[in-house]
Design a protein around this nucleic acid. Structure first.
Lengths: 189, 189
DNA sequence: TTGTAAAACTAACAATTGTTAGTTTAGTTT
DNA sequence: AAACTAAACTAACAATTGTTAGTTTTACAA
């Protein structure tokens, strides 16, 4: 019909519900009602509630880690790498705002997949930290504590999902440019 | 004993659990076990699970709004006002990291108190936005979209609860200074 | 028309949920 | 000693939870 499997449709709908109430507060009956079917029917397509969360979170977590791995190993200058990281966040968030919410808020409810998620997150932060270190050693970035830079930048990017859907049609380039300026050069004259 | 009512002790313990699993995933039996009593005994001190969330969230939400109201109406220069906002976030987060997590992640589960919470949040953002506008009109802040400045700053400050407890003993002044520099002047040379 | 596979259904389960009612314990005041 | 109070307890409830088993519907290919 729309090129999606029924399972994918379920996961997409689930992600939307997870964003508004959180994983734990969404029941299988809520999800089924949203799909227009009965709860038991969901189990023709998925094996458990937890599997849905795994699908939702791990797919997008892999995209992020794969992306920053490429950015770090590229030949770009540091500033370009930082801008590429920002652009990746804006683009993935604009494409998958609901999944981003689960990634941020519901990862602790992962069962089997939690270890893999934590590995992906650790690797992501490792690459990001290394880019920042390189920037400092090359004199492109100020000599501020790496962890402060990592935290303040990453937390803004990770929470774009709260903000981006509020704008109507998303002008990605405008957002990317604003964030580049704000995060890299600050807001003070 | 420790100057706290039994109800306050319950709310403090609850906030800690809410941070690690989210409000919906914490059962009254979980909370009771953490207090070393049975679930039914909790109801000698509180009237419902929801009341606990109300207590936890509204207390800290009021602190924030009251604080920024005073900052905005002060005679300080814009830069000092911005630094005062940052300092307030660092201090309240260092004092109440668990409550901050509920404020960020569990407000949608508020029942009776949700309207009051949303009013407090709106008022907070209003004052913050006005400080930013004033900064722009006085030429202290760059001519970047107000909403971008508001979002990127506020999201960093609101999520300090994730980061501050990771540090051992919290050197508040060091964190405040780093954030002042990072948020206001950026990370790029 | 018949066979097949996808996807829905009804009905029910065992466990867990927030909560209530009534009772007991322990410490303090009269 | 008697009364009072704070705070715990046991036992149970009605509702909701994720999930299973078995059955029926739908649509398309043979």
């Amino acid at each position: 019909m729309n090129g999606l499997t029924r399972k994918q449709e379920i996961c997409i709908t689930a992600a939307r519900l997870f964003k508004s109430k959180g994983y734990a507060a969404v029941t299988m009956r809520d999800l089924a009602a949203e799909m227009g079917i009965k709860a038991a029917s969901l189990y023709n397509h998925i094996s458990s509630k937890e599997e849905i969360l795994n699908e939702v979170i791990l797919a997008i977590a892999k995209s992020f880690t794969k992306g920053i791995r490429n950015i770090r190993s590229s030949e770009d200058k540091i500033t370009e790498k930082l801008q590429a990281v920002i652009a990746q966040h804006v683009n993935l968030t604009a494409d998958y705002p609901f999944e981003m919410a689960s990634l941020n808020n519901d990862w602790m409810h992962l069962g089997e997949g939690k270890k893999e998620y934590l590995n992906l997150r650790d690797e992501y932060e490792l690459h990001f930290r290394e880019i920042i270190k390189q920037g400092k050693s090359e004199g492109v970035l100020k000599n501020i504590d790496e962890e402060v830079i990592l935290f303040s930048t990453l937390v803004t990017l990770r929470n774009l999902y709260i903000w981006i859907p509020k704008k109507g049609v998303v002008d990605r380039d405008k957002i990317i440019n604003s964030l580049n300026q704000t995060l890299l050069q600050g807001i003070e004259i």
